[in-house]
Protein backbone atom coordinates (compact mmCIF):
# COMPACT_ATOMS: atom_id res chain seq x y z
CA UNK A 1 0.00 0.00 0.00
CA UNK A 2 2.80 2.36 0.90
CA UNK A 3 4.41 1.67 -2.45
CA UNK A 4 1.23 2.56 -4.28
CA UNK A 5 0.91 5.81 -2.34
CA UNK A 6 4.53 6.71 -2.95
CA UNK A 7 4.13 6.09 -6.69
CA UNK A 8 1.02 8.32 -6.80
CA UNK A 9 2.77 11.10 -4.87
CA UNK A 10 5.78 10.88 -7.15
CA UNK A 11 3.54 11.15 -10.21
CA UNK A 12 1.79 14.20 -8.76
CA UNK A 13 5.17 15.78 -8.03
CA UNK A 14 6.46 15.19 -11.55
CA UNK A 15 3.36 16.62 -13.25
CA UNK A 16 3.29 19.64 -10.97
CA UNK A 17 6.79 20.77 -11.99
CA UNK A 18 6.40 23.58 -14.54
CA UNK A 19 7.70 22.64 -17.93
CA UNK A 20 10.09 24.94 -19.72
CA UNK A 21 8.69 26.54 -22.87
CA UNK A 22 11.29 26.45 -25.58
CA UNK A 23 9.80 29.33 -27.63
CA UNK A 24 8.02 32.25 -25.99
CA UNK A 25 5.47 34.38 -27.76
CA UNK A 26 4.19 37.86 -27.00
CA UNK A 27 0.61 38.87 -27.61
CA UNK A 28 0.01 42.51 -28.36
CA UNK A 29 -3.46 43.82 -27.69
CA UNK A 30 -5.15 47.15 -28.24
CA UNK A 31 -8.31 48.03 -26.36
CA UNK A 32 -10.26 50.64 -28.32
CA UNK A 33 -12.83 52.06 -25.90
CA UNK A 34 -16.45 52.05 -26.92
CA UNK A 35 -18.14 55.42 -26.88
CA UNK A 36 -20.69 56.22 -24.20
CA UNK A 37 -22.54 59.40 -23.34
CA UNK A 38 -25.46 60.96 -21.57
CA UNK A 39 -27.86 62.82 -23.82
CA UNK A 40 -29.72 65.57 -21.97
CA UNK A 41 -32.96 66.39 -23.72
CA UNK A 42 -35.63 68.96 -22.84
CA UNK A 43 -38.14 67.68 -20.28
CA UNK A 44 -41.83 68.43 -20.16
CA UNK A 45 -42.80 72.07 -20.12
CA UNK A 46 -46.10 73.87 -19.72
CA UNK A 47 -46.91 76.30 -22.51
CA UNK A 48 -49.10 79.30 -21.78
CA UNK A 49 -52.50 79.61 -23.41
CA UNK A 50 -52.36 81.95 -26.44
CA UNK A 51 -48.57 81.79 -26.54
CA UNK A 52 -46.97 81.92 -29.96
CA UNK A 53 -43.69 80.28 -29.00
CA UNK A 54 -41.87 78.62 -26.13
CA UNK A 55 -38.17 78.09 -25.58
CA UNK A 56 -37.86 74.50 -24.32
CA UNK A 57 -34.10 74.48 -23.78
CA UNK A 58 -31.11 72.86 -25.39
CA UNK A 59 -29.92 69.41 -26.25
CA UNK A 60 -26.63 68.79 -24.46
CA UNK A 61 -24.30 65.89 -23.78
CA UNK A 62 -22.36 64.95 -20.65
CA UNK A 63 -20.27 62.07 -19.29
CA UNK A 64 -18.86 61.51 -22.76
CA UNK A 65 -16.01 59.10 -23.41
CA UNK A 66 -14.60 56.92 -26.15
CA UNK A 67 -15.03 59.48 -28.92
CA UNK A 68 -12.38 60.84 -31.26
CA UNK A 69 -11.87 63.62 -33.76
CA UNK A 70 -13.65 61.45 -36.33
CA UNK A 71 -16.28 59.94 -34.07
CA UNK A 72 -19.23 61.91 -32.70
CA UNK A 73 -22.99 61.67 -32.44
CA UNK A 74 -25.92 63.02 -34.40
CA UNK A 75 -29.23 63.73 -32.67
CA UNK A 76 -32.32 63.93 -34.81
CA UNK A 77 -35.79 64.93 -33.68
CA UNK A 78 -39.03 63.13 -34.44
CA UNK A 79 -42.37 64.79 -33.79
CA UNK A 80 -45.85 64.84 -35.29
CA UNK A 81 -46.35 68.63 -35.05
CA UNK A 82 -49.63 68.48 -33.15
CA UNK A 83 -50.65 69.06 -29.54
CA UNK A 84 -53.54 66.65 -29.06
CA UNK A 85 -56.09 66.01 -26.36
CA UNK A 86 -57.88 62.74 -25.70
CA UNK A 87 -61.16 64.67 -25.27
CA UNK A 88 -61.56 65.99 -28.80
CA UNK A 89 -60.36 65.37 -32.31
CA UNK A 90 -58.99 68.91 -32.70
CA UNK A 91 -55.30 69.68 -32.32
CA UNK A 92 -52.98 72.65 -32.00
CA UNK A 93 -50.29 72.64 -34.64
CA UNK A 94 -46.67 73.47 -33.92
CA UNK A 95 -43.23 73.30 -35.44
CA UNK A 96 -39.71 73.32 -34.03
CA UNK A 97 -36.93 75.76 -34.73
CA UNK A 98 -33.41 75.81 -33.41
CA UNK A 99 -31.84 79.08 -32.40
CA UNK A 100 -28.60 79.78 -34.18
CA UNK A 101 -26.22 82.63 -33.58
CA UNK A 102 -28.07 85.82 -32.70
CA UNK A 103 -31.72 86.16 -31.78
CA UNK A 104 -33.00 86.37 -35.36
CA UNK A 105 -31.13 83.41 -36.73
CA UNK A 106 -33.45 80.43 -36.57
CA UNK A 107 -33.24 77.11 -38.32
CA UNK A 108 -36.39 75.11 -39.10
CA UNK A 109 -35.91 71.77 -37.43
CA UNK A 110 -38.30 69.50 -39.28
CA UNK A 111 -39.06 66.02 -38.03
CA UNK A 112 -36.04 63.94 -39.04
CA UNK A 113 -33.58 66.86 -39.04
CA UNK A 114 -30.51 66.51 -36.87
CA UNK A 115 -27.79 68.35 -35.02
CA UNK A 116 -24.23 67.11 -34.64
CA UNK A 117 -21.92 66.83 -31.65
CA UNK A 118 -18.40 66.40 -32.96
CA UNK A 119 -15.80 64.40 -31.08
CA UNK A 120 -12.59 65.68 -29.55
CA UNK A 121 -9.18 64.05 -29.61
CA UNK A 122 -9.33 63.57 -25.82
CA UNK A 123 -12.29 61.20 -26.17
CA UNK A 124 -15.00 63.66 -25.14
CA UNK A 125 -17.70 65.30 -27.22
CA UNK A 126 -17.79 68.98 -28.11
CA UNK A 127 -20.79 70.42 -26.28
CA UNK A 128 -21.42 73.04 -28.95
CA UNK A 129 -23.59 71.20 -31.47
CA UNK A 130 -23.98 72.34 -35.03
CA UNK A 131 -26.86 72.42 -37.47
CA UNK A 132 -26.63 70.66 -40.84
CA UNK A 133 -25.48 73.96 -42.42
CA UNK A 134 -22.60 74.12 -39.95
CA UNK A 135 -23.95 76.97 -37.85
CA UNK A 136 -24.21 76.62 -34.06
CA UNK A 137 -27.32 74.96 -32.67
CA UNK A 138 -28.64 76.55 -29.51
CA UNK A 139 -32.03 76.32 -27.80
CA UNK A 140 -35.05 74.61 -29.28
CA UNK A 141 -38.15 76.72 -29.71
CA UNK A 142 -41.69 75.47 -30.21
CA UNK A 143 -43.60 77.71 -32.64
CA UNK A 144 -47.34 77.44 -32.19
CA UNK A 145 -49.82 77.99 -35.00
CA UNK A 146 -51.74 80.81 -33.31
CA UNK A 147 -54.74 80.37 -35.62
CA UNK A 148 -55.41 77.15 -33.70
CA UNK A 149 -56.09 79.05 -30.47
CA UNK A 150 -59.33 80.40 -31.95
CA UNK A 151 -60.75 76.97 -32.64
CA UNK A 152 -59.23 74.96 -29.77
CA UNK A 153 -61.78 73.47 -27.39
CA UNK A 154 -61.06 73.50 -23.66
CA UNK A 155 -58.77 70.79 -22.40
CA UNK A 156 -55.17 69.79 -21.79
CA UNK A 157 -53.21 69.31 -24.97
CA UNK A 158 -49.88 67.52 -25.07
CA UNK A 159 -47.23 66.24 -27.42
CA UNK A 160 -43.91 64.45 -27.17
CA UNK A 161 -40.70 64.83 -29.09
CA UNK A 162 -38.38 61.86 -29.56
CA UNK A 163 -34.64 62.48 -29.77
CA UNK A 164 -32.69 59.89 -31.76
CA UNK A 165 -28.97 59.62 -31.06
CA UNK A 166 -26.54 57.76 -33.27
CA UNK A 167 -22.75 57.44 -33.09
CA UNK A 168 -21.18 58.34 -36.43
CA UNK A 169 -17.74 57.78 -37.90
CA UNK A 170 -16.31 60.40 -40.21
CA UNK A 171 -13.97 58.37 -42.38
CA UNK A 172 -13.01 61.44 -44.40
CA UNK A 173 -14.22 60.17 -47.76
Amino acid sequence: MRKVISVILAAILIFSIPTTVSAESTTLTIDVPEASYILNVPANQAIDYLASEKNIGSITVSDTSGFSASKGITVSVTYDGQFATPKYACAINYSLVCKGTGSENRYDLKSGDYITFTGNADGTLNNNPTLPDGSPANELIVLIDTDCWDTALGGIYSTTITFNADVYFDVGM
Binding site: A35, I38, N40, A43, S62, F163
Partner: peptide, 13 residues
Amino acid sequence: QNTNSIAIPGYEA
Protein backbone atom coordinates in the same frame (compact mmCIF):
# COMPACT_ATOMS: atom_id res chain seq x y z
CA GLN B 1 -32.76 67.05 -9.44
CA ASN B 2 -33.02 68.47 -12.89
CA THR B 3 -36.52 69.44 -13.93
CA ASN B 4 -35.50 71.04 -17.20
CA SER B 5 -33.95 68.06 -18.92
CA ILE B 6 -33.97 64.30 -19.00
CA ALA B 7 -30.64 62.44 -18.96
CA ILE B 8 -30.58 59.52 -21.38
CA PRO B 9 -27.59 57.13 -21.30
CA GLY B 10 -26.24 56.18 -24.73
CA TYR B 11 -23.71 53.57 -25.81
CA GLU B 12 -21.86 52.78 -28.99
CA ALA B 13 -22.15 49.06 -28.23
